[in-house]
Design a protein around this nucleic acid. Sequence first.
DNA 1: AGCATAGTTCGATCGTTATCAAACTATGCA
DNA 2: TGCATAGTTTGATAACGATCGAACTATGCT
Lengths: 106, 106
Amino acid sequence: MTNDYPVPDMADVELVDVLRAVADPIRLRIVTVLGDGEPHSKSAPDWGFDVQKSTLAHHFKALREAGITRTIVEGRSHAIQLRRAELDARFPGLVDALTHAGAAAD
Amino acid sequence: MTNDYPVPDMADVELVDVLRAVADPIRLRIVTVLGDGEPHSKSAPDWGFDVQKSTLAHHFKALREAGITRTIVEGRSHAIQLRRAELDARFPGLVDALTHAGAAAD
DNA sequence: AGCATAGTTCGATCGTTATCAAACTATGCA
DNA sequence: TGCATAGTTTGATAACGATCGAACTATGCT
């Protein structure tokens, strides 16, 4: 019941696909917020972007399919979280560079 | 006569624009090659991509306008070079993350 | 001057994608 | 069971961007 929302195997994730995913203002801000490593609710109002919730859902999906995030389902509420350790192993330094060099490895 | 091809002030360069520029297979490979810091000829055959030279010129322009590269004109031949020091100062670790990742997935 | 070479720019095409609104699914609650 | 809530999916639209070929610009060479 938990863990629908499949993520790609990190070994299959290509750098250019990760870059395409974060090369969007909204998705880059999402990743920046996720830089703390914690799960964050997908609740649209919480994010405060000026887009509809369907658009936000589209961005969350893009990040997950690019291998950047995972989705955590708990009841009716979904949270999104960076796949930090895996990303750091596959693309050293990338997440740090994107999130403006905030420390906190895994 | 020399040094047309204007580049943006690095202070005005936004991360998301840099990411959009490198979020393309050809441009990412160009940046990887430019990672040595040296100027490289724009000569299409030298690069060996399977695109026309007009397409390659489009990619060079995209990189320059994103603030990633500069163009060096000498006679009839043009060279392209990473703005490495400026990029490293503005986006610490980014160029390293982009250029070191290719080694794993070849 | 005339011609070749190196690279750019232009105009068109075509695929991709960000966006919205509406319909849908799944869960929790009374 | 019925209803509200949280989020997703679908279908449509519109803008963007990668690509090509052809025309153009600038430089060097004879």
